[in-house]
Design a protein around this nucleic acid. Structure first.
Lengths: 210, 210
DNA sequence: CCCAAGCGGAGGATCTTCGTCCACTAGCAA
DNA sequence: TTGCTAGTGGACGAAGATCCTCCGCTTGGG
């Protein structure tokens, strides 16, 4: 990920580093991981020089942001699993709590470039795997409860969310947000166990999506 | 759209023009409307020179492709409305028949640039409006039939499809295709009228999406 | 108080894409 | 068949975008 310093960073440098990651997080989520480095630096309130000293190239920054974000989502998932009374509720909560999720998805599945960078990184691969295992547990739990339709697997749920979390061009941010929320709700209804149309193909597991 | 010739095109020129539109159609659908002109020319089997003579700039090409494609989708929609026994069936058919739809959506809602170009063009605005009216008729028809959930409008359906039709990075085209088909099926289940969770916000009509 | 760590951002290098231009080819009218 | 003009392709210079280094200035902290 970043240049790993033997000597701990000076306080101001540390602060800047955090600001850079935070800025990159929102910018990547909104515009994808290919925005000019200068824009990220500006948003973080630092110069490009500082950005490049901390992260030798875009790839390093993407990796750092990805690790940071996957960890957050994983924490969210575990918290939801622990606190909610049913697996179904945990799943729904995770899916609605989609702000962080949005970025992970954007990085992992929407941008070819980011996707390739992340695929190579073992730390990220591990986080991703853990996250999908957590998701698998929720999916199977909710299916045992009889609430989630039995003909899906964790890969399906992941793909569905990847698709829905994509930002569209729309008249206003409010409309966009409302539309996303409504789409998610419709999709959750579609995921409920009910007498309905059988799905084409076969359930997609966590190894079917890459 | 293109340079409108007083004199009809020579046979070979006409053929090339059609090949360019066809090539642009698949390339735009797969990679969005910002791919280098040269790539489109290559895919069409012509030189860039030919491409630029027919379409003075990228904008002209995008417009031509959009008109072509919106017309196709509109035809599909009308055909479905006419041939299917119920509005619900027509809607489902249209949504599954998503190949052409994919591109329209890609152009109209996923790319900022294309979106702006299309917004300005009256011919395209008309086609778009007609298409949304057709969709509205299906939506209302299916709601009257009692098959489509009553708390959605044509804007919701359009947005949902815009989201689902986006291509993701995935291991293989087969997985991608299967996943899309499954997502659409899940979404159709979610759209059925059933006792379920009420949606947040309000139904989005055709003027809510731009 | 001092100095090494840290900083910003100007600017040269590099890469990408655009769109023109012109020597060559080929429909088609006579 | 022939001649003429519409049509062709792709090399190439221009224009722009982005990268990332470098260096003179600032500042945290021992």
């Amino acid at each position: 990920m970043s240049v790993d310093p033997q000597v701990p960073l000076r306080a101001d440098a540390r602060r800047n580093r955090d600001q850079i990651i935070a800025a990159a997080r929102t910018i990547f989520a909104d515009f994808g991981p290919e925005v000019p480095m200068e824009e990220i630096a500006r948003a973080a309130g630092v110069g490009v020089g500082t950005l490049y000293r901390r992260f030798p190239d875009r790839e390093a920054l993407i990796r750092a942001v990805a690790v940071d974000n996957f960890s957050r989502v994983l924490d969210d998932a575990r918290e939801a699993a622990e606190q909610e009374p049913t697996a179904w509720r945990a799943l729904v909560r995770l899916l609605h709590q989609s702000v962080e999720l949005h970025l992970s998805v954007q990085l992992a599945m929407l941008s070819k470039k980011a996707h390739e960078i992340l695929k190579e990184d073992p730390a990220i691969a591990t986080l991703r795997e853990e996250l999908l295992i957590e998701l698998e547990a929720m999916v199977q739990g909710a299916q045992n409860e009889g609430t989630l339709r039995p003909d899906v697997a964790e890969g399906d749920v992941a793909m569905l969310f990847a698709l829905l979390l994509r930002q569209l061009e729309s008249r206003s941010p409010e409309i966009a947000r409302m539309s996303t929320a409504r789409s998610i709700a419709i999709m959750i209804d579609g995921l409920q166990a009910r007498p309905g149309t059988p799905l084409p193909g076969r359930p997609l597991g966590r190894h079917d999506i890459n």
